[in-house]
Design a protein around this nucleic acid. Structure first.
Ligand code: NAD
Ligand code: NAD
Lengths: 214, 214
DNA sequence: TATTTGCTGTGAAAATTTTCACAATGTTAT
DNA sequence: ATAACATTGTGAAAATTTTCACAGCAAATA
């Protein structure tokens, strides 16, 4: 078997999210076709993915929801709590702070950084804000391994370098810039313009449509 | 050959973005390996993708940047200007409005919707805001085919239904909800929590890392 | 108890995506 | 001129991802 693919990880995280959301007080089990319908995949796809987590269901009762959540979490979650850093406390950065905080028990944005002195040295949505100059220093001291990048594209690469210097190994990038990072640093790009362009393409009166992504 | 795959479309849009960003006043041509390095793909991948747009480069000068941009645009852009609707003028919705407006010559968010009367019947970042009740009516009248969804997850499905009733064929969904839509409506999901979870997984001290996505 | 039912887990097939590898081609250097 | 070179476009191979299809099984039914 070896390594679990990125796509599979993405789907597993989705399954877990759906299972957590779904009010499964009425039912304690779920079948691959039910989960597949919720997620927008085939039952075979779901079973194939779940194979990888090592938890095995029963033909009669399907998958036990609680145990399945637990098994996916065991695979996908970090062993202990993880702190996350955010750079760029502008409109997007703030929206993310507001939205994210308190949403996960294991993950928390515990340090935010900006150049603007108006925004630093205070607490926003429960998150302490510092000047960017101290980014590497602070995340290194705290062992932060994950960063969210919300600075203007002109600053994106230099802040990335500071992230990397501070030991970050994964970056969620909202700037419309391709970041240059060492090969062992993972980057997930989330440019909104490109996403809109893609959706516009597929909303068009063209022949080529598919259904679900993301 | 038939249809261009979703992945290829995504990469083409990325190539165009990179080409537009890059200050190519010094050079008028670009080679597949250069574009590949910028985008994070192999030269072969780039050539294979560019094959599909029908524009052909020269072995000696590579691809003419201006013409390449034009060819990708011809494939990917709508024939005329497209209006886009946005629902949910909260922190994310506003950030997107602020960011998106004026960024594209063909695409513009021209109608925003909210339940909160404080936010409606005014203009925010150049975009007129209306009460959600009028969503279907207004987008139908204007022929809007693309929607951006930024409402709380509890409202996501009902607003989606209004989008669909109003003729929307593509939705960019920022709510952490799986939308139910007719099969000919395209949905791109952009849940931030899932993205963070994925990045955290790949920032972990695990064996399995890859490099670039999004 | 025996039979039917509808599911899981998975080997194998199919489909899709990516990479390889090389002939063709225009440019530059000699 | 001619040779040397670097790159394109692409058929074919390789790799990856998804789907098929079915044995095996536990529960429900008769
Ligand atoms: N992907 C998306 O959905 C999306 C949406 C909107 C904006 N964006 C991108 O996110 C980024 C920020 O957008 P915004 O709308 O929040 O802009 P903004 O101007 O509101 O915020 C940018 C913030 O970054 C700070 N900043 C500037 N230089 C910095 C530096 N070197 N270090 C740290 N902080 C710095 C600024 O002080 C400001 O607070 C931009 O790159 C934009 O392209 C992405
Ligand atoms: N994907 C991301 O990056 C990301 C980040 C933050 C938030 N979100 C999601 O986006 C959504 C909005 O988040 P937010 O932080 O902007 O919240 P918010 O509370 O600031 O904004 C929500 C807005 O939606 C409006 N609204 C409520 N019900 C509505 C309805 N039926 N029709 C139209 N408008 C309605 C509210 O009045 C409010 O203005 C949430 O679903 C959240 O989960 C996504």
């Amino acid at each position: 078997m070896s390594l679990i693919s990125e796509k599979t990880i993405e789907r597993l995280i989705l399954y877990r999210g759906l299972l957590l959301q779904a009010n499964h007080e009425s039912e304690s089990g779920i079948y691959s076709h039910q989960l597949g319908r919720m997620a927008g995949f085939t039952p075979a796809q779901v079973r194939r993915d779940l194979m990888q987590v090592g938890y095995t269901g029963s033909p009669a009762r399907g998958y036990d929801i609680a145990k399945l959540i637990q098994s996916i979490s065991a695979l996908v979650d970090p062993a202990e709590k993880r702190e996350i850093a955010l750079a760029g406390i502008g409109s997007i950065g703030r929206a993310i702070l507001a939205y994210f905080q308190g949403r996960s028990s294991l993950l928390e944005i515990t340090a935010a950084f900006d150049t603007d002195p108006e925004k630093t040295d205070r607490v926003i949505h429960g998150c302490r804000c510092y000047p960017v100059d101290r980014l590497s220093e602070i995340i290194l001291a705290r062992g932060i391994r994950t960063g969210i990048l919300c600075v203007p594209s002109g600053a994106a690469q230099s802040v990335t370098d500071a992230f990397v210097a501070g030991g970050v190994r994964g970056i969620l990038n909202y700037a419309p810039t391709r970041l240059i990072v060492p090969p062992d640093v993972y980057v997930e790009n989330r440019d909104m313009i490109m996403a809109v362009e893609k959706v516009v393409y597929f909303s068009g009166p063209r022949t080529g449509q598919r259904k679900e992504t993301g």
